[in-house]
Design a protein around this nucleic acid. Structure first.
Lengths: 109, 109
DNA sequence: ATTGTATATTGCAATATTACGATAGAGTTT
DNA sequence: AAACTCTATCGTAATATTGCAATATACAAT
């Protein structure tokens, strides 16, 4: 096989997994961090910044966008990509919640 | 191709991407959440809990373990798996940090 | 020692991801 | 309009992931 059985899990589980998967590649982490670093968020810079070809970066941007981690708006003939704070907040909350729950437990190992 | 060019990115970027990738599957999210839910952390339960065959779960557990998200200790003929709080903390910090940096910026889009 | 239970490993088929050259589309500039 | 810039899409090769049956390993209990 190879297809993941997304239908067997809850929507929330699938949702978090999708976000995590989108971040599961160093190039996409690097794109995210670059978007944080610079104040402008034109995409052309990213191609010069990362050691990847333009189509590859375009593809990674698409995946980040599909996952809802970034959003892009057309700005002349360039595209203004930036991070979607809500989605980052969702991830932040998720891990914070786990940490809180773990504190309340006596970890048995 | 298909191999990701990990050598072109920083150690920290690769490290976060590895963690995210390990969480990038609903079954592994479900395993994590199950480990939080129950107080005991014997693995046998997980096989009964998830709609996946035992070898598949064993494989997912291995990936979570390799990523440092869970740790397992042998307990008789069962294995006691539990979450590694440090790694969750690392993720929590990472997203918290991004959220803080985004607050300080005027998001241009 | 044999049987039973819990977990890991192997091998393999189906599918997904990654990367990029070539090309296309869309706006800008001259 | 022609040339240029920026980004997306297509096609395709290399590689990785997913899932499971079969099998192996390791300990426990009888």
């Amino acid at each position: 096989m190879g297809a993941s059985k997304t239908d067997h899990f809850t929507d929330k589980q699938n949702s978090i997994a999708t976000l995590a998967k989108a971040l599961g590649h160093p190039a996409r982490i690097a794109i995210l961090e670059y978007l944080i670093k610079v104040d402008t968020c034109i995409c052309g810079d990213i191609v010069n910044e990362l050691p990847l070809a333009q189509p590859t970066i375009s593809q990674h941007l698409k995946e980040l966008k599909n996952a809802g981690l970034i959003k892009g708006s057309i700005e002349g003939n360039a595209i203004c990509y930036c991070i979607d704070e809500k989605t980052i907040g969702k991830l932040q909350d998720y891990f914070k919640n786990i940490a809180i729950k773990l504190e309340k437990k006596n970890n048995c190992c």
